[in-house]
């Protein structure tokens, strides 16, 4: 009797239908996103460096966000963008978003920024406090002129309004110590940061980076050399940053999803091995 009961158990946990496995993964990843669950996080140094850098920025200068992600890396880059903008708004730093990586990046950037403003519940007015400069084709000459003479390279915002009619851009000439822009944060799913290393690093302007998890290991040397003033690694980086500034958002819930999914895999692996052990015991019992 007992043997009959044990045999199916071993079979059941050893050969769960893959569709059930998939459905489980689907639900377990989706639930934290919908329910906005959160788990505590441990903050690593690179995001902390970025937050400290932003906290030390002067109030009267503009921050540039180079928003170069599109739908493909949305899950990793969008929460980074949102939480960084929230931090900027809290510090009352005005900012401009510019895209060089993908033609439809400005639209996604706009959505992320508007979401951040909504979350902060602060009247942060387009044109007065921030601007979206749209997509620019970043050839080498363009990058050079952008760093030296911003109005030369950027003539209008993404809706075609001339830059000199936009209050927040008034008087903004260039990067560098005597310039009007204090920092550039690249949020990217592609290799756009290389261009900024080449042209922006020499000006001494602070450079921050939010990139996908796959790209992060290559960026650590730049963190060491001080070319980067902080780094957000994928979803995890966004979540840690949310923790630092105390603003729970998508990153935190997505990391909860990640955690649960990882735990789910762990449980599946344990079940698989359990069935192996049970089967082994069963065979040994029969042999006796």
């Amino acid at each position: 009797m007992r043997g009959q009961r044990r045999l199916p158990l071993e079979q059941i946990i050893g050969r769960i239908d893959r569709r059930l496995v998939y459905a489980g993964l689907f639900l377990i990843t989706l639930a934290p996103l919908v329910g906005r669950w959160a788990l505590p996080l441990y903050v690593t140094p690179p995001p902390k460096m970025l937050a400290d850098t932003i906290n030390a920025l002067p109030q009267d200068k503009l921050v540039f966000i180079s928003s170069n992600w599109d739908a493909g890396t949305q899950a990793e880059n969008r929460p980074q963008m949102t939480v960084l903008v929230r931090h900027l708004i809290r510090r009352r730093l005005k900012f401009a978003s510019i895209s060089i990586g993908a033609p439809n990046a400005p639209q996604l950037a706009n959505a992320a920024i508007e979401q951040a403003i909504q979350l902060e519940k602060v009247p942060w007015v387009y044109g007065q406090d921030w601007v979206n400069l749209g997509y620019k084709l970043a050839t080498e000459p363009w990058l050079r002129s952008f760093v030296r003479q911003i109005p030369e390279a950027v003539k209008e915002d993404w809706k075609g309004t001339p830059v000199d009619q936009i209050p927040v851009m008034r008087g903004v000439q260039k990067f560098g110590p005597d310039g009007q822009a204090s920092m550039l944060i690249d949020i990217t799913g592609s290799a756009t940061i290389d261009g900024w290393y080449r042209y922006l690093s020499p000006t001494g302007v602070k450079l921050g980076l939010g990139c996908t998890a796959v790209m992060a290991p290559e960026q650590y040397p730049f963190l060491d050399s001080g070319q980067l003033s902080g780094l957000l690694t994928g979803m995890k980086g966004a979540a840690e940053y949310e923790q630092i500034i105390g603003a729970q958002g998508f990153g935190t819930t997505a990391m909860a999803g990640q955690s649960f999914a990882h735990l789910y895999i762990l449980i599946l692996i344990i079940l698989g091995n359990l069935s192996l052990v049970l089967g082994w015991l069963e065979r040994r019992r029969r042999r006796r």
């Binding site: 496995v21 895999i265 599946l268 692996i269 698989g272 091995n273 192996l276």
Partner: peptide
């Protein structure tokens, strides 16, 4: 999905 099912099946 596939990385999960591969792990479940192979990691024994």
């Amino acid at each position: 999905f596939y990385i999960v099912s591969a792990a479940y099946r192979a990691f024994r």
